[in-house]
Nucleic acid binder design. Structure first.
Lengths: 237, 237
DNA sequence: CGTAACCTTGATTAAGATCAATTCTCGTGG
DNA sequence: CCACGAGAATTGATCTTAATCAAGGTTACG
């Protein structure tokens, strides 16, 4: 695929003209990671943000006790690690910034683009549309995080799982343009799913079991069949 | 105080010239709330964001079971409920938007300014600086929420409390320009503090007790004396 | 003073983390 | 094609944390 075409897969860059895309392309670099490879650690000095061209990236933290939790899962088109750019803007503490979390490729051949800060700042000043897109993308993430906190604070694990399954079903329906597809193929390991739901694998396993014994879902490895979507929905209220 | 001068207390508007401030002033309205009064509910149709001119505002949600949790506490200078503006931008679902959470004044004579969406969008398009400020403010909030999730997922209540106390101490030191002020005067009720830490008042009470029996702090109503700030810090690691 | 809101303390319970033991799955090499 | 081994997932037993329930104490304020 043509490089500029590929870059425009990133939502943030999707409205740019070819000159602007070329500008991005000149300064950025594209790299492909194996499954399990680290893209950056939360100790590395910050020097640019990333966009997912293909594959799947997990953004996560690890506690002192060694427990991991996943903040975000980033799919094709998403950008990540853009927040520090604008903290720089406010603080001008350019030197001592580090990445805010760890990032790992969790699909084979995950392809990302790395955009350095300086040229991007230039671009953003010359193009107010990209600024608005950035705001929209931040707004979306803020909304997501608020929902996530709400869920972690107020819901038990089974409820959180039910919410996750419904969101995934929604996504699949949207992608396949069907209204009641009922099979979810997990694209992440159960270990990662647990950590994304703010729990551990054993507890996730029991939650899945619970929904299964209630005949709401059927689990078969990474394939989850939704039997009673209405029951699942009533779980989340 | 002069109205324009007052408006410029809002961080987002702090760099605007008097013409722009006048523009904001013409379209916005300023209102003062009593302690405990609701500013908006999460069911109301969305029609603008707010800035705190004076006092303290809690942004919170209530679960079906009636439990409350506080997402943010907004002080003078902060804006809140700006996220939907940019979701509108993306979705154009102008009609069906509601406020994302509830907002309540929790100090007497809390004074807020309400800015309607349309004029603000106009302003933001004509002034790229305000756009960058908005991005900086969103970035700050994203960072805060990520820390918050990390804390809720990985820390126990005492650790969360310790972190809160340290942040407050930091704020007070900054404000009073001293390096080791050791008395915190809580500006919120313990009920609100508990809900802000993602727990309930009884558990908070026990956590405070715990730190007190370890001689790390001394609690006297709303006044908390920090005895051993180093011990407190070591709690948070 | 009296009452309501706020806070503390104790006893009990429930959810989920931890620990430990298997079982399942799948890729690799013999 | 099968056997093996490693990582992934399940299951059970136990323990810890914090929520819930209940009672009593404090404070503020009319």
């Amino acid at each position: 695929m043509d490089a500029l075409n590929e870059i425009s897969k990133i939502f943030l860059f999707s409205g740019l003209n070819s000159k602007e895309l070329q500008f991005i392309n000149d300064f950025s670099c594209i790299k492909t990671f194996k499954k399990g490879e680290i893209i950056f650690f939360d100790t590395e000095p910050y020097n640019g943000f990333y966009g997912v061209l293909d594959g799947l990236v997990k953004i996560y933290k690890i506690s002192n006790e060694g427990r991991e939790y996943i903040i975000h899962l980033e799919h094709t088109g998403s950008t990540f690690a853009e927040v520090p750019i604008f903290e720089k803007f406010e603080n001008a503490q350019t030197s001592e910034m580090v990445y805010p979390a760890n990032a790992m490729a969790i699909e084979e051949k995950t392809k990302v683009i790395k955009v350095p800060v300086r040229p991007f700042i230039e671009l953003i000043h010359s193009n107010s549309d990209i600024c608005m897109k950035m705001l929209a993308s931040f707004a979306k993430r803020l909304r997501f995080l608020n929902k996530h906190i709400e869920s972690i604070t107020l819901d038990d694990v089974t409820k959180r799982l039910a919410k996750y399954l419904l969101i995934e079903t929604e996504k699949i329906n949207l992608k396949n343009n069907c209204r009641n597809c009922s099979v979810i193929e997990l694209n992440i390991s159960k270990y990662d799913l647990a950590s994304h739901l703010g729990t551990i694998i054993e507890t996730l396993s029991r939650a899945l079991k619970k929904l299964q014994t209630e005949k709401i879902i059927e689990v078969n490895g990474k394939r989850i069949l939704i039997n009673k979507i209405e029951s699942l929905k009533s779980y989340t209220t």
